[in-house]
Design a protein around this nucleic acid. Sequence first.
DNA 1: AAGACTCAGTAACAATTGTTACCAAAGTGG
DNA 2: CCACTTTGGTAACAATTGTTACTGAGTCTT
Lengths: 231, 231
Amino acid sequence: MYSKWLQVLVKCPLFEGMDMDQLNSMLECIKPRVLKYNKDEFIALAGNDFKGVGIILSGEAIIVKENVAGNRVIISMIESGEIFGEMAAFSGKPKWPASVIAQQPCNVIFISSKTFVSQCENLCVSHQLLIMNMLKILSQKALILNRKMEYLSIRSIRGKIIHYLLEQYKQNDKNMFTLPLNRNELADFLNIPRPSLSREMCRMRDEGLIDFYRSSIRINSLENLKALADL
Amino acid sequence: MYSKWLQVLVKCPLFEGMDMDQLNSMLECIKPRVLKYNKDEFIALAGNDFKGVGIILSGEAIIVKENVAGNRVIISMIESGEIFGEMAAFSGKPKWPASVIAQQPCNVIFISSKTFVSQCENLCVSHQLLIMNMLKILSQKALILNRKMEYLSIRSIRGKIIHYLLEQYKQNDKNMFTLPLNRNELADFLNIPRPSLSREMCRMRDEGLIDFYRSSIRINSLENLKALADL
DNA sequence: AAGACTCAGTAACAATTGTTACCAAAGTGG
DNA sequence: CCACTTTGGTAACAATTGTTACTGAGTCTT
């Protein structure tokens, strides 16, 4: 019944650590529903009753939220193997917090929240793995949000840049390294306009703090950078 | 063995839904360690091996993080009944992401991550509740961070105010309501300086969008507010 | 009721940031 | 190799925001 989708599901972080046999027998055990959606159909409608954690089996969908003004904003796009609804599933409010809309014909599997707490009758070991994976997904989500928050709560552009560079420096452990993002992406990540990012980086270069050419960066004065970081 | 602390633990969200008898038998089953710390002692040291999810039984502690510049920043304060380390517990990196330092003599209980995935031998029902509660705590944490992010990623002060007011309006469902925060707290929440908040609110009053006196607010033109919300 | 404290509004000025538009260098595909 | 696209630096100007310091209203205390 699920064999058609095993290839996709085995790559989903929710089933990490399982081989296809384990996965298959677990699916037979928890029996999640697989549903089809046409293009532009609502896979989930914000405010409606929550169905369960969803995984896109095929196709592509967007997650959409209505802001306070009532306008629709695209939060993200998800495709095959990706998961949605994991935050809402256990929050105690069984309503969809955002809408999910098929961009192409989609197959979607829904795993009910109960699955994660009640041991299955067969006491399969995969079930424990499933719970562990869900906990992992949620905590990693929280950690990512936490990191983003750190950047967003820095008010000055220079502060954000320094924070980012020092984080990169820590990872590379070298004075010279390559940025994994281009200017547009970096500006986006730091939530500032790109020209403002460029301007500030050039000022920092003029002051002798850093040197750079495109994505190659050299930190000239680690001490000065650090001293500026907590203003 | 744990009876001394049942009163505290029963109020902890991790054990929500359990009565003292259930809680006690579950503790006897998972046998978590209880450790004592003196004032100023490190309950957890950032970078060290992760011990497990902690709960403060008595006393008071601070959660401290070193920023990129190497300075210590107090993230939050926790007291009896409060939990720490829940994000790190399942993230796959078994290191403390921040330090926890006792501010007063503390008793702390540590519950290992494994507890949450492996069913106990006695198959106690409370165990399922424990897993469910942990999932709930994590997902609520993620949702809270998500909400904070929404505010932080709005760039203009006016945008933040409007977003906040419309959210409050939604909750109260009335044109007139009382803000739950004073100006200082609100400015802090929106991550802007207080005088800037005051100035902008007054401008909005001058433009006829809102009226207010201290914490009482009236929204004059819901439509105009909404129209301004997504600029 | 006088003094002290907290809370919020105000104003002036400096500083930072957003905006827009343009340009040059680097990369890409025929 | 030439057009085309992408990427990133630059500049000028407007707009917003931060900063600081002061004020008065309200609240609390003794």
